[in-house]
């Protein structure tokens, strides 16, 4: 008996995918009519598929969504601030004025300072002004990038803050903490003040302020 044409098995799969051309289907059915071995092959494939489809529908266990809702991290800080400003536009304007007036006081914020600054973690890769968290790598601790482009392909176990820069997250990216992007002078000031206040408070409250967020 001469061997079966190689493409027959491929046609079987095209057929099962519902993507077979009329011509190929014709060739397949003609071949199956005269070849028992391929008929059996096709039959076994169809049965395997039917067998899979017989799998019963499975539902999430009782209380599943409640457990998820209970284990979500507390609301994002940035969202809270934005909401507060949204509700108090007048106060926001005043705060803006005060902050802008205070701009001169901050010597560490200088727009001409375009140098890349990045927190030091062992598995970060820096190329020019690009900072990369490589795929498959895990960066522990908070990540801080200023005047640079951050590419996250791996995992960051902590918060991510990007100042005057951009951020790119690959689909493999995982960030366990908060992500903040600060672009304008105003927000940068706000951030500085906020962290300052937080640090100041933590002196009185004792433990690391991050702990109480969780």
């Amino acid at each position: 008996m001469k061997p079966c044409p190689e493409e027959i098995v491929q046609y079987m799969h095209d057929y099962l995918d519902g993507e077979i051309t009329r011509r190929d289907e014709q060739i397949l059915s003609e071949h199956l009519e005269k070849c028992q071995a391929c008929q059996k092959h096709m039959d076994q494939l169809s049965r395997s598929v039917a067998f899979l489809k017989s799998a019963s529908h499975i539902e999430a266990p009782e209380g599943f969504s409640d457990r998820i809702m209970a284990s979500l991290p507390k609301e994002r800080q940035g969202a809270g601030v934005r909401r507060w400003f949204g509700r108090h536009p007048m106060l926001a304007a005043v705060a803006m004025f005060v902050l802008l007036a205070g701009l001169a006081l901050f010597s560490n914020f200088n727009t001409s300072d375009q140098q890349l600054a990045v927190s030091t973690q062992p598995n970060l890769v820096v190329e020019g002004n690009k900072v990369i968290v490589p795929e498959g790598e895990k960066v522990e601790g908070d990540l801080f990038v200023r005047n640079g482009e951050l590419h996250i392909e791996g995992e960051v176990e902590g918060d991510v803050t990007v100042i005057n820069g951009s951020k790119y997250m690959a689909s493999t990216a995982v960030v366990t903490g908060k992500i903040e992007e600060i672009d304008r002078a105003f927000e940068w000031l706000w951030y500085t003040i906020k962290s300052g206040v937080k640090e100041g408070l933590s002196v009185f409250e004792g433990p690391d302020p991050d702990d109480e967020e969780k």
């Binding site: 539902e59 599943f64 969504s65 994002r76």
Partner: peptide, 18 residues
């Protein structure tokens, strides 16, 4: 910032994901 809105998302997809 409305965390509670996530609950409906969970209930819509929980069976499929599980």
């Amino acid at each position: 910032g409305d965390q509670s809105a996530f609950e409906e998302i969970v209930s819509l997809y929980q069976n499929r994901l599980y």
